[in-house]
Design a protein around this nucleic acid. Structure first.
Length: 591
RNA sequence: GGGGUCGUAGUUCAGUUGGUUAGAACGCUGGCCUGUCACGCCAGAGGUCGCGAGUUCGAGUCUCGUCGGCCCCGCCA
């Protein structure tokens, strides 16, 4: 059993002691990090979340017997004077490395079982083991840093919005299933058997109600839930920075969030970023980067080279263009000298990604052109394609043909893989862009109807309103995503505040009056009572922190995350429940 | 739901064409050591090769199934 803490009070953290403290009698409380037993002299490091301090236990102080018992992760109190280290024994790797504590008393407050992996070691540990013993993983420096970064980010968010007159307002966690796309987590009501609460996928309707309520500027750091399959950047519960502003247009939202991002980068010591961010129309993002969340840390942009081949002798490409398809090309800077094998690998990779083919072209050293289709397409067409892309002598272009979105998507995928492999995606660079002008509606082939691309409360762009009846698929929305380094870190829109427009939207979505009433009647009622124009955004806090931390997965910035199979390995959740609980809820499981 | 990949000591990994007793490093245990700081030196313990079938004279190694971690597609505004 451990010794009592008694009246001992920490005088310094393990990161605090400096030369100025020499001579003070100090009390350190923390975990044994490493022990260096020299026989008649024992050094050990005490660790807390602030740092490490070396303690020395000597025979003449009668502490060797106690010090000999110390093992990693024991919890100890060390009492003694802070002493100067001699010049030869200073440890420049430690902030506290010029001093040490000469123990006069060592209390073992608690022993520790041998940990399943070493805390005092940065070496890799399999992720399932880390998750099973998350409380130990969280003691390691990397996770301590990540969790601190997350706190700093959240604190900066709160400070920023407070300074801009926003109110943080909590919204219900037990709520009603809303019309958004994701599957809901449901919570059975005991009081109303057969009825269920849903956990919010986002506080969408509540924040709009807060605008109707005159709260004017709202934000919330809020947990959201979606019962969908996981990814490195998707957890079933995740945290949004939810924002809504009355009387806002998109520029108001953009300006505010750009300032926020500047503040965040500054607050966590990662420098700053230029504003305003680029605004990239959705259609252009798809065409030029093959993605609605392009990574703009690399400039490589896809160009249309249909003109080069439309009249060429290359029958395959001519036919594709004649059938309404496109020929598009991706420049690969500096890869003009690629070997035959590298070129073959690009073609093979395109095949893996489902492409029918991939063509390459480049300038030869003598100024002639080379291409995998030089013979069939002819020098003129190949040269024209190279010119359209505007590449130089040292560059390569990869050419794909087909339906527009498919060709760009393929090249966009190659773009990312090439940039990744070449090391062009510097995690310390932060390339923001707004993606704007999303389509309002998306045709659902399976259901043969339109669905809201963002959500059914998204406002159309004023200039496109007339197309709502004539060509609904072409209507653009006042919706926008914020993209950072190829990751979607936020999305929002200006909402519909007008009942007539909202009704038109439901009609387009083929949501009948009865259905609309049943699903969100209270919200429709609210719209009738003087709803101000409003709009907002929701930012993915987990993704933002992961990018700031340079971590590939949001699991590494969440204290207690779930695995790809949506399981908490530590808590053992989900799990069966006592049959009495089910009975009380009048539920039966056939699982 | 589908595809890929990984699973060997406490941990991270190696393990040849299927062949005799499954190795290394770190950690752990014991001993020695008065200035270490990834202490050093000596000795030692430690294995259901994820699990289950199959092929084979013989399986860590090959096949099938299954469980678990990770990545991706579908899904997710």
């Amino acid at each position: 059993m451990g010794e009592p803490l008694g009246n001992l009070v920490r005088t310094h953290t393990c990161g605090a002691l400096r030369e100025a403290d020499v001579g003070d009698n100090v009390v350190l409380l923390g975990w044994v990090h490493r022990v260096r037993d020299l026989g008649a002299l024992i050094f050990f490091d005490v660790r807390d979340r602030y740092g490490l301090t070396q303690v020395v236990a000597r025979d003449d102080d009668g502490l060797l017997a106690t010090a000999k018992r110390l093992r990693p992760e024991f919890v100890v109190a060390v009492v003694g004077p802070a002493e100067m280290r001699s010049d030869e024994t200073v440890n420049p790797k430690l902030d506290t490395g010029t001093v040490e504590v000469a123990a006069r008393e060592i209390r073992i407050l608690n022993e520790s079982a041998r940990p399943p992996f070493q805390i005092a070691d940065e070496s890799p540990v399999s992720e399932d083991l880390r998750l099973r013993y998350r409380y130990l993983d969280l003691r390691r420096p990397r996770m301590q840093q990540n969790i601190r970064l997350r706190h700093q980010t959240a604190a900066a968010v709160r400070q920023f919005f407070d300074q801009h007159d926003f109110l943080e307002i909590e919204t219900p966690v037990l709520t009603k299933s809303t019309p958004e796309g994701a599957r809901d987590y449901l919570v059975p009501s005991r009081v109303h058997p057969g009825e269920f609460f849903a956990l919010p996928q986002s506080p969408q309707i509540f924040k709009q109600l807060l605008m109707i309520a005159g709260m004017d500027r709202y934000f919330q750091i809020v947990r959201c839930f979606r019962d969908e399959d996981l990814r490195a950047d998707r957890q079933p519960e995740f945290t949004q920075v939810d924002v809504e502003i009355a009387f806002a247009n998109p520029d108001v939202v953009f300006g505010l969030i750009e300032s926020l991002m500047q503040e965040l980068l500054t607050a966590v010591g990662l420098g700053s970023v230029d504003v305003p961010f680029q605004r990239l129309p959705y259609a252009e993002a798809l065409a030029r980067y093959g993605s609605d969340k392009p990574d703009l840390r690399v400039a490589m942009a896809i160009e249309d080279v249909s003109d080069a081949f439309a009249e060429s002798s290359f029958q395959v490409f001519r036919q594709i263009v004649a059938d309404g398809g496109v020929i598009r090309a991706l420049p690969v800077p500096g890869r003009g000298g690629a070997s035959r094998k590298e070129l073959d690998d690009f073609v093979a990779r395109a095949g893996d990604l489902g492409a029918a083919g991939l063509v390459w072209a480049r300038y030869a050293a003598d100024g002639a052109v080379q291409s995998s289709v030089l013979k069939v397409a002819g020098e003129v067409a190949v040269r024209r394609a190279l010119e359209l892309v505007g590449v130089g002598k040292d560059d390569l272009i990869l050419v794909a043909a087909g339906e527009g979105a498919a060709a760009s998507k393929l090249l966009g995928q190659l773009r990312l893989e090439i940039a990744q492999k070449a090391g062009w995606l510097d995690p310390a660079r932060f390339a923001f862009t707004w993606v704007v002008d999303f389509p309002l509606l998306e045709w659902d082939d399976a259901d043969q109807r339109f669905a809201a691309m963002h959500h059914p409360f998204t406002s159309p762009i004023d200039a496109d309103i007339e197309k709502l009846s004539s060509d609904p698929g072409a209507v653009r929305a006042k919706a926008y995503d914020l993209v950072l380094n190829g990751s979607e870190i936020g999305g929002g829109s200006i909402r519909i505040h007008d009942q007539a427009m909202q009704q038109r939207m439901f009609d387009l979505l083929d949501i009948g009056r009865d259905e609309a009433r049943a699903r969100f009647g209270f919200f429709l009622d609210a719209l009738e009572y003087g709803t101000p124009p409003h709009g907002g955004i929701a930012l993915g806090l987990d993704r933002i922190v992961a990018l700031l931390a340079g971590e590939p997965s949001i699991r590494d910035v969440i204290a207690f995350p779930k695995t790809a199979a949506a399981v908490d390995l530590m808590a053992g959740a989900p799990a069966g429940v006592d049959p009495r609980q089910l009975k009380e809820l009048r539920l039966r499981s056939d699982g």
